[in-house]
Design a protein around this nucleic acid. Structure first.
Lengths: 335, 335
DNA sequence: CTGTTAGCGCTTTCAT
DNA sequence: ATGAAAGCGCTAACAG
């Protein structure tokens, strides 16, 4: 199996290696007819430049790394699709890494990436409160880094995020506008940051736009069955007419509870939930979801990264971007 | 910003470049104390070998390409997770490509990959009936290729698939075992191969295991609303007591129809559906889904590929693998 | 317009 | 046990 490299093309055409190289890159200092010949042969033999060689030589690889916590999650699937759209358009390749929530793994990936394997890194931080000297290393090595969704306030890099506080307001206002007088918030267990930030939106929206004096926050336990029970008790005792679920899973559980205690949605109670997948809205077409613009986050982050890579405009060219969540109201019969 | 390469380490330690290289690779012909010193400095300076250089030199990159139709699809997310599990364990990197159903794009990706960018390729073919000379090219260039899920019978490479015929039997038998006497099959529109193969399983299962003489196949139109209407008419006219949906979307629509015409699931009608996401089963916890072993497909394909890469045991070492779908019965209150 | 040549960082003979 | 040097395929600076 002969290998088709520049040298081979050059020999076939009786040209110097550099001439072929220049022709292939469409240099203006090569005659039209030479280019013709080179292109023709290259196409005929299906010549493909060796990525390692040009990478080594030119110190750029046309590859970016995407580092995310995990994939089995609609949000990140959509983000990746957004990223892919822009990288593909500009001829970049995607290297994909999952940290599985393991900060040490993230450190190890970043270290590996810190030596010319990629032209830039897109990262959604695994543990926002942990040390991030590994990220400083990237900066020090001059490898562009853009953070998205899960970011670190202590880093100076471009960040692309969703305004979770605003989203909390948006969701709560929706319920208020629909006429809900007593709105409960299902807070995700543990200290998951978005749970709290979204809650603040909920609290402030109540204060400003509703007559409801007392917020109704249920801190849901982590087990599904425990959460079910806990939500059931709350619904029975408090009889809210609106529920804002901080994450989709809680909305699904809440829906089940409603089924069991024979509450009708949306006649007796309205539910709004964060969701990327619209799973929750599949449960009931009249259920409204609030959706992070996942695809756009991917696009935006990728565009920012490529801009930095190409213009080398410093590691913070373009500044941060905060995107807004959207309400999705579903009324159609099917998905 | 100084760069930390082998040369730098060598200079610092007053050693030859080759000695450092050997030490880093833990060669047996290097004294223990030299190794110590080299390791220590490498760690202290966070030395990372340049991937392009070693790739160029050694003709292997420790990268594999994963080429799939798209990502916004739970099946492929899970497959990728499976792939990642095994590549990560063996220190391989994943390059990710989406063909978006465009055969020309697939050809272009494969061509790019055909020159040393990766050590191997995992592919789910975009258009199973199209020409695949681009894949022959990979074989000719000696780049290992493993096909999964959407494969081409005309290729000799290792293939990892699910037995869709068997799955059709499994699903149909489930309904029969649950006591259904009249089972309908919701066939996906167009000539999507799985729709037909699963249907054959349905037909044969009826023949062998059911008293039902006449199969009830509904070829569903592609629009959601059209499918809804078409399913509604069928349910009303035929009154089946079991439905086997070839894909999840049809199950969801069918569920809506049942709601509208006040059929109770599973009292009046049982539904079983293909699904990776369990969205359908969220609709009703008593709904049973049949699931492709997506994660295992990823794992299996990746393992096969790495085996070929490492042992160079020819392009078909290990042979094909056909995995079985699984029934998932859900009874819990929540997800 | 085209050819010659020097590396990019690393691995691997071949010497010592 | 260590060093010197060649070369992976490509690009670009320097000659003509």
């Amino acid at each position: 199996m002969i290998k088709i490299d520049i040298k081979y093309l050059a020999k076939e055409l009786n040209l110097a290696i550099s001439t072929v190289s220049r022709a292939l890159r469409d240099s203006h200092e090569i005659s039209a007819e030479t280019k013709e010949k080179v292109f023709a042969l290259a196409k005929r033999l299906n010549y493909q430049p060796n990525a390692n060689a040009s990478g080594l030589r030119g110190q750029k690889t046309k590859m970016i790394a995407v580092v995310i916590p995990e994939m089995v999650n609609d949000f990140f699937s959509l983000v990746i699709s957004g990223i892919e759209k822009v990288t593909q358009a500009q001829g970049y390749h995607i290297l994909l890494y999952f940290t599985h929530g393991d900060h040490a793994l993230e450190v190890s990936f970043i270290n590996t990436l810190a030596n010319g394997r990629v032209d830039g890194v897109l990262l959604s931080i695994t543990d926002e409160h942990n040390d991030n000297s590994h990220l400083e290393l990237l900066n020090k090595k001059g490898i562009p880094l853009v953070l998205f969704d899960r970011v670190s306030e202590r880093m100076d890099n471009v960040k692309v995020t969703t305004d979770n506080y605003d989203s909390g307001i948006l969701a709560t206002r929706h319920l208020i506008d629909m006429g809900c007088k007593k709105i409960g918030y299902l807070k995700i267990h543990k200290n998951i940051p978005v749970g709290t930030i979204r809650m603040n939106g909920y609290l402030d929206a109540l204060k400003k736009h509703s007559a409801q004096k007392v917020p109704l926050v249920l801190e849901c336990p982590s087990g599904n069955d425990e959460a079910f029970e806990s939500i059931r008790r709350m619904l029975v005792a408090e009889k809210p007419d609106g529920i804002f679920a901080s994450v989709e899973k809680l909305a699904v559980i809440c829906y089940r509870v409603c089924e069991q205690i024979r509450l009708h949605i949306p006649q007796d109670i309205r539910i709004i939930s964060f969701s990327n997948l619209h799973t929750a809205s599949l449960l009931n077409p009249s259920l409204t979801t609030i959706t992070q613009p996942a695809f756009e986050i991917g696009e935006t982050a990728a565009k920012a990264l490529l801009r930095i890579i190409q213009k080398k405009g410093g590691y913070n060219a373009g500044g941060n971007v905060v995107l807004q969540s959207r309400l999705i109201k579903r009324n159609s019969t099917a998905r």
